[in-house]
């Protein structure tokens, strides 16, 4: 009985952290799919996105104190705008080979990280949850309200994204552009515009993830690396370039981490998750959801 309770509790916690990874992974996958760009600065966008929201929540800008939900919206919108601007910067990088792309985007990441340090300082702060900090008991399972908020809003965003991509005109154009850039632009789809929107959405989702996670984690400029790497690992685990893959990858990464922390060794949490990712890739190099392609000779 208690064992199942702990297991459920662990899995819910894992799904919470996993939602964060999934939202970050979506940014990697969407941008990769539409531009062919592996954006190693995405972790830094996540970090800046967190600050963009939290600074209004904590009254760090001209004493403006916004409620959490309003700070969330402002942060996501600001980060989306930042994404549009960054897309211009990344456009020339997308056509380079992987090593240059790697280095170029890492360069942008270093820039963003250190600008953040200059503006907001290197030391971070803890963020108070807008919800009560007392756990809710559901059938013996105790759940942190903020964690439920993360899972709830995360799910809403993922479903919303899927609907946007499959139902709206812009979303369909984005999918077409991702499928084949040349054909899409021949058909009159403004590819640069859809790329900008892709970047905006990817950055907005990262910001949402960061603001949601802020009351659970500690906010500081160096948080970009850890989540950046895990988000990328999630995207790869699910299959880079696949939207469902990013979600599945993120949630699995989170759950694996939580289970290994709870049942195997808390010290080796991160290590076990990485080892499982490596093993999955060895068995299925294209990731869990990704399609296997036959190499042309």
């Amino acid at each position: 009985m208690t064992k199942t309770v702990i297991l459920i509790q662990t899995i819910v916690g894992g799904l919470g952290i996993g939602s964060i990874y999934a939202l970050v992974a979506l940014g990697y996958s969407m941008v990769y799919r539409s531009m062919g760009l592996v954006n190693f600065a995405h972790g830094s966008i996540y970090m800046i996105g967190t600050y963009f929201g939290i600074i209004f929540y904590r009254g760090m800008v001209a004493g403006i104190h916004l409620p959490y939900w309003a700070a969330f919206i402002v942060g996501v919108l600001l980060t989306a705008i930042l994404g549009v601007l960054l897309e211009r910067l990344f456009r020339p990088l997308a056509n380079l080979d992987l090593m240059l792309m790697l280095l170029g985007t890492i360069g942008v990441g270093i820039m963003l990280d250190n600008l953040a340090i200059i503006v907001w300082g290197a030391e971070g702060f803890a963020v108070r949850s807008p919800l009560p900090s007392k756990p809710i008991l559901v059938g013996g399972v105790s759940l942190l309200p903020q964690m439920l908020l993360v899972i709830g809003v995360g799910t809403l965003l993922m479903v919303g994204l899927q609907t946007f991509l499959s139902r709206t005109k812009v979303g369909k154009a984005m999918r077409a552009a991702a499928q084949d850039r040349e054909i899409a632009s021949a058909m009159g789809i403004p590819v640069n515009f859809t790329n900008a929107i892709t970047f905006a959405i990817g950055s907005g989702l990262a910001s949402a993830a960061g603001i949601l996670a802020a009351p659970i984690v500690y906010v500081n400029p160096s948080m970009s690396a850890a989540v950046g790497i895990k988000g990328f690992a999630s995207a790869i685990l699910g299959g880079l370039g696949s939207i469902p893959g990013a979600i599945v990858g993120g949630l699995s990464f989170g759950v694996i981490e939580a289970i290994s922390a709870g049942f195997i060794s808390s010290a080796y949490t991160k290590g076990i998750a990485f080892i499982i990712m490596v093993l999955v890739l060895m068995v299925k190099p294209s990731g869990i959801v990704g399609e296997t392609t036959v190499e042309k000779v």
Partner: peptide, 17 residues
């Protein structure tokens, strides 16, 4: 000081491009 690494990032991007 802090601007060191910002310059460094900019320089890296410029080299790549």
């Amino acid at each position: 000081k802090d601007w060191q690494l910002v310059f460094y990032g900019v320089a890296v991007v410029l080299v790549v491009l």
